[in-house]
């Protein structure tokens, strides 16, 4: 098994058409509220997210989905999808799980056609990512690292598009998140089924507020 197959890089490339460009994951609202005003404040906000929310939410589900795929356990994948969607706090993020899952499924179909595990995971992009990574030959840690970086990279890029952080500044932020991301991956590796705890209040509130805005650049 290859540690980092090209297919995993392909899935995490921002050019992969899974609708990621339409989501800021709360960054837009944090800009509106004045919490994120520049690269330093973006780094502070993302550091909180990476420490408090990422391990028990996104990464735990991706990792346990990887495990279920390794065991060829379709019912367990379906359970993870249900639980992942149920633990998303806003309607917009729940819908995004399914919509992005469908889009990711279309991409993966070309790489790995016709697998019941993928069909079972299609309701959650997070779970599908873990399953697809396993089927494409990625090891578990590489899968989690790719998922973690992909998430914060998308959030930093949202800040660039909003105009509060420049493209070079955003790359500096990502570089400084390397340590926190490593710790988040290690934290998530300790998680067992049902251990979904993780809460970053400012991010959760931002997503909830954003859902009630009448206009915005991003869906979430």
């Amino acid at each position: 098994m290859t540690d980092l197959p090209f297919a995993l890089l392909q899935l995490t490339d921002s050019a992969c058409p899974t609708g990621g460009f339409a989501h800021s994951h709360g960054v837009e609202e944090l800009v509106r509220s004045g919490r994120v005003t520049d690269a330093d404040s973006l780094l502070a906000a993302l550091t909180e997210y990476v420490a408090e929310s990422l391990p028990g939410r996104d990464l735990a589900f991706a990792g346990l989905a990887w495990d279920a795929a390794a065991d060829d356990d379709v019912p367990r994948v379906q359970t993870l999808v249900d639980e992942r969607v149920a633990t998303r706090l806003t309607r917009a993020t729940r819908q995004a799980e399914g919509q992005r899952g469908l889009a990711l499924r279309r991409v993966v179909a070309a790489l790995h056609p016709g697998d019941p595990l993928l069909d079972a995971a299609v309701g959650s992009s997070t779970v599908l990512f873990g399953v697809a990574a396993r089927l494409l030959g990625a090891d578990r840690r590489s899968t989690l690292r790719a998922a973690a970086f992909s998430q914060v990279s998308a959030m930093a890029q949202a800040a660039v598009r909003i105009g509060r952080v420049g493209p070079t500044g955003a790359q500096h932020v990502l570089g400084r998140l390397a340590g926190p991301l490593d710790r988040a991956v290690a934290d998530s590796e300790e998680r067992t089924h049902g251990d979904w705890h993780g809460f970053a209040p400012s991010w959760e509130l931002a997503q909830s507020r954003h859902e009630h805005r009448t206009s915005g650049m991003f869906i979430t």
Binding site: R161, I162, G163, G166, P167
Partner: peptide
Amino acid sequence: LTATFSRELVHRW
């Protein structure tokens, strides 16, 4: 409507 000038490029927009 989504176009923005990066503050890395401009002082005023």
